[in-house]
Design a protein around this nucleic acid. Structure first.
Length: 272
DNA sequence: ACTGGATCCTGACTGC
DNA sequence: TGCAGTCAGGATCCAG
């Protein structure tokens, strides 16, 4: 489910409810997530403390308090909601955090590809974060950067930009969408894209992500924000899940291929 | 160093 | 109705 815009939408939605509110209790109904939740460690780290900030690195959410950092990933089907303490938990609400003002945050994740970890060492050096590429909306993510990193790569440009060691946060939807905007064929070898076209691709990635954040992200099946509402960027998608439909630019039918076990959508006339 | 494939899991949907 | 097969916003791990 969530790519960078959906995670950022979640972060903005939950942040105001959490800051300076002590966590009074944590209930872990299902610890078997992507990695087992370390119940004692996590409980000890967060109960009795308020979170001082909620940050994002790529698709990871980082909840900081004076003891350390709680790191969450929403995986494919995860969402984080703020509800009242009277709302009954739903199926697949695996973890809940109770706050002193009565609000409750719940982590919902049917497929359980997400994770919730407690880190009491330097977060930036954590195994899951230390090798991550730049943030796509930062100035260090430039056409020149992608051009330099790609020179030795024979991999397809689509899987290349989805590699979090290259750049974080570009998932399956936005990779297809950005390549369409930039007019680059998704199967083109990363090492055979010109500097000028990488410049355009970087602009397209930034634009696509920014516009999606403005719309509250993309809901295909089940993404909801912290208030339980869907995102509305789906209406602005040009190619994703548009197989056989007319390209908005040239009207030829949108193609679908599979790359790295993921569906890719593109226009064979507009993208070379 | 780099690449592709298998893998974790549940649910929605399709076709027989 | 039921059952099998396919497909999903991710990304680690491992073999080659």
């Amino acid at each position: 489910m969530p790519e960078l815009p959906e995670v950022e939408t979640t972060r903005r939605g939950i942040m105001g409810h959490l800051i300076d509110q002590k966590v009074t209790k944590i209930n872990i109904h299902q610890p078997a997530l992507r990695w087992p939740v370390e119940v004692n460690k996590l409980t000890k780290g967060i109960v009795g403390q308020p979170f001082s900030s909620v940050n994002r690195r790529g698709k990871y959410l980082l909840f900081e308090n004076s003891n350390g950092t709680m790191l969450c990933h929403l995986g494919m089907s995860g969402s984080m909601r703020i509800v009242t303490n009277r709302e009954p938990p739903r199926k697949h609400d695996h973890i809940e955090w109770r706050l002193e003002n009565g609000a409750v945050m719940r982590f919902h994740d049917p497929r359980r590809f997400g994770c919730v970890l407690w880190i009491d060492t330097n977060v930036e050096q954590h195994k899951l974060l230390r090798d991550l590429g730049p943030e796509p909306l930062s100035s260090s993510f430039s056409g020149d950067y992608l051009y330099q990193r790609s020179r030795t790569r024979k991999q397809a440009v689509k899987t290349f930009i989805m590699d979090s060691k290259i750049v974080v946060g570009v998932g399956n939807i936005y990779a297809s969408e950005a390549l369409f905007l930039a007019g680059i064929h998704p199967a083109r070898q990363a090492g055979r894209v010109s500097r000028q076209r990488y410049e355009l691709l970087v602009q397209s990635i930034k634009l696509t992500l920014k516009k999606s954040i403005k719309s509250g992200g993309t809901t295909l099946r089940d993404f909801v924000n912290s208030s339980g509402e869907p995102g509305y960027f789906r209406q602005q998608l040009n190619v994703y899940e548009k197989y056989d439909q007319a390209c908005v630019r040239c009207h030829s039918p949108i193609k679908r291929i599979v790359q790295g076990q993921r569906a890719t959508y593109y226009c064979s006339r507009c993208q070379r």
